[in-house]
Measured scan of single mutants.
Amino acid sequence: QKEELKEKAKEAVKRGNKDKARELLKRAGISEEEAKKIIKKIE
């Protein structure tokens, strides 16, 4: 489940939808700070 949400978040970032990505990562139980780092890494 968590990995699936991370994959979806990756796709969202690639489409330029960072808010959606952050939302998905939060749903995966990832903190706001972690989510920001992950999104930065994907960009």
Rank of each mutant, 00 (worst) to 15 (best):
E34L: 06
K40S: 13
A12M: 13
K37E: 14
E34G: 04
G29W: 01
K18S: 09
G29V: 00
R22W: 14
K8L: 14
K37A: 13
L5N: 03
L24T: 00
S31A: 06
R27V: 04
R27S: 08
K14V: 08
V13I: 12
K26C: 11
I42Y: 13
E34S: 04
G29R: 02
E23C: 14
K18W: 14
K6R: 10
G29P: 00
K20M: 12
E7G: 05
G16E: 02
R15G: 08
I38E: 03
R27F: 05
K8Y: 07
R27W: 06
K40G: 09
K37F: 09
S31W: 03
L25W: 00
L5M: 07
A28F: 04
K36Y: 13
E32C: 06
A9R: 00
Q1I: 13
E43F: 09
Q1H: 11
E11H: 07
K6W: 15
K14N: 07
E3N: 09
A9D: 02
A21H: 01
G29Y: 00
K41D: 14
I42T: 05
I39Y: 04
K10T: 08
K40C: 13
S31I: 03
I39W: 04
I42Q: 04
E33D: 09
K14A: 09
K6G: 04
K37V: 11
D19H: 08
E43T: 06
A28K: 01
K41S: 13
K14C: 13
K40H: 14
L5F: 07
R27D: 08
E23P: 00
R27P: 00
A35T: 05
E33H: 07
E3V: 06
L25D: 00
R15Q: 13
L25V: 00
A28T: 03
R15S: 12
E34N: 05
E7F: 09
G29T: 00
I38N: 01
K2I: 15
I39L: 08
K10Y: 13
E23G: 04
E4D: 11
E7M: 11
K20R: 10
A9S: 02
L5I: 06
Q1V: 12
G29N: 02
R27I: 07
Q1N: 13
E7P: 02
E43W: 11
K14Q: 10
K26N: 06
K37S: 11
E33A: 10
E32P: 07
G16W: 03
K18N: 10
A21I: 04
K14H: 10
L5T: 03
E7V: 07
K41G: 11
E23T: 05
A9P: 01
E3P: 04
I30D: 00
K18L: 15
A35W: 04
E33C: 08
I38F: 15
R22C: 14
R15N: 13
E34F: 05
E34I: 06
K41W: 14
I42D: 02
A28W: 05
I38L: 10
I39P: 00
K41H: 10
K26Y: 09
E4C: 15
A28V: 02
A35C: 04
E43A: 07
I38Q: 02
E4Y: 14
K36G: 10
E7K: 11
K14M: 14
A12N: 03
R15H: 10
K26I: 14
I39E: 01
G16K: 03
K18G: 05
L24A: 01
K41N: 11
R22M: 15
G29D: 02
E34C: 11
E34T: 05
I42L: 12
K18M: 14
K40D: 15
A12P: 03
I39Q: 01
D19Q: 11
E34H: 05
E34Y: 05
K2G: 08
D19R: 12
V13L: 12
R22G: 04
N17Y: 11
R15I: 08
L5P: 02
E7N: 10
K20H: 11
G29A: 01
D19E: 11
Q1C: 14
E3W: 10
K18A: 09
I39K: 01
N17G: 03
G16S: 03
K14T: 06
E33K: 09
K18Q: 08
L25Q: 00
K41T: 11
S31N: 07
A35L: 06
E11Y: 05
K10F: 11
E32H: 05
E11F: 04
I42C: 05
K6D: 03
A12I: 04
Q1W: 15
A12R: 02
K18F: 15
K8F: 07
D19N: 10
R15A: 14
E4A: 12
E11W: 07
G16F: 04
A9L: 09
K10A: 11
E23H: 06
S31E: 06
K41Y: 12
K10Q: 06
A21V: 03
I39S: 01
D19V: 09
N17M: 12
N17F: 13
K20Q: 12
K36Q: 13
K40F: 14
K2M: 15
R27Q: 13
A28H: 03
E23R: 09
E23W: 07
E33Y: 08
A35K: 01
I30V: 10
K40N: 12
E34R: 05
E43P: 03
E43R: 06
K6T: 11
A35N: 00
A12Q: 09
A12W: 13
R15V: 08
E32K: 06
R22D: 04
K10L: 10
A28Y: 05
I30A: 04
E34A: 07
K18I: 15
V13T: 03
L24W: 05
E43K: 05
K8W: 10
D19I: 10
A9C: 04
R22N: 07
E32F: 07
A21R: 02
E34V: 06
K40P: 01
R27A: 10
N17V: 03
R22Y: 15
A12Y: 13
I42M: 12
K14F: 11
E3M: 08
G16R: 04
A21D: 00
R22K: 10
K8M: 15
K40A: 15
D19M: 13
K14W: 11
E7W: 10
E3K: 08
V13E: 01
K37N: 11
E3C: 10
E7A: 11
K6N: 05
E32I: 07
A21M: 03
S31T: 09
I38S: 01
K8I: 07
K26T: 09
I42F: 14
A9F: 05
K2V: 14
N17W: 12
N17D: 15
N17H: 11
K40Q: 14
I30Y: 15
A28Q: 02
K26F: 08
K2T: 12
E7R: 13
K6I: 15
E4R: 12
E33N: 06
V13P: 01
Q1A: 12
K14E: 06
I38C: 06
I30M: 11
E11C: 13
E7Q: 11
A12K: 02
K8R: 13
R15F: 07
K8A: 13
D19Y: 09
L24P: 00
E3F: 07
V13H: 03
E23A: 08
E43C: 10
S31L: 05
A12T: 03
K36T: 14
V13W: 13
K36D: 15
E3Y: 08
R27M: 11
E3I: 07
R22V: 13
A9M: 03
E32D: 13
E33I: 07
E32T: 06
K14L: 15
E32S: 07
A9Q: 01
R27K: 09
A9H: 01
K40M: 14
E3G: 07
I30N: 02
E4N: 10
G29L: 01
E43H: 05
A21P: 00
A12F: 12
K36I: 14
G16C: 09
R27L: 13
N17R: 09
K36V: 13
R15T: 09
Q1R: 12
K36M: 15
K6Y: 15
R15W: 07
K40I: 11
E32G: 06
G29Q: 01
R22S: 06
L5D: 03
K41P: 02
E32R: 05
I30R: 01
N17C: 14
A12D: 02
E43L: 12
G16M: 05
K41E: 15
K14D: 03
L24I: 06
E33M: 07
G16P: 01
K6Q: 10
E23Q: 08
R27H: 06
E43M: 11
E33S: 09
A12V: 02
K14G: 05
A35G: 03
E7C: 12
K2D: 10
K8P: 01
K20N: 05
R22E: 12
K6F: 15
E11D: 08
E33V: 07
K18H: 12
L25H: 00
K40Y: 15
E32N: 07
L25K: 01
R22F: 15
Q1S: 14
S31V: 03
A9T: 03
N17A: 08
G29F: 01
E43Q: 08
E23F: 04
K2Y: 14
I38P: 00
R22I: 15
K26H: 06
E4H: 10
K37R: 13
A9N: 02
K10E: 08
E43G: 05
K2P: 09
K36L: 15
I38K: 01
I38M: 09
A35Y: 04
K26P: 03
E34Q: 06
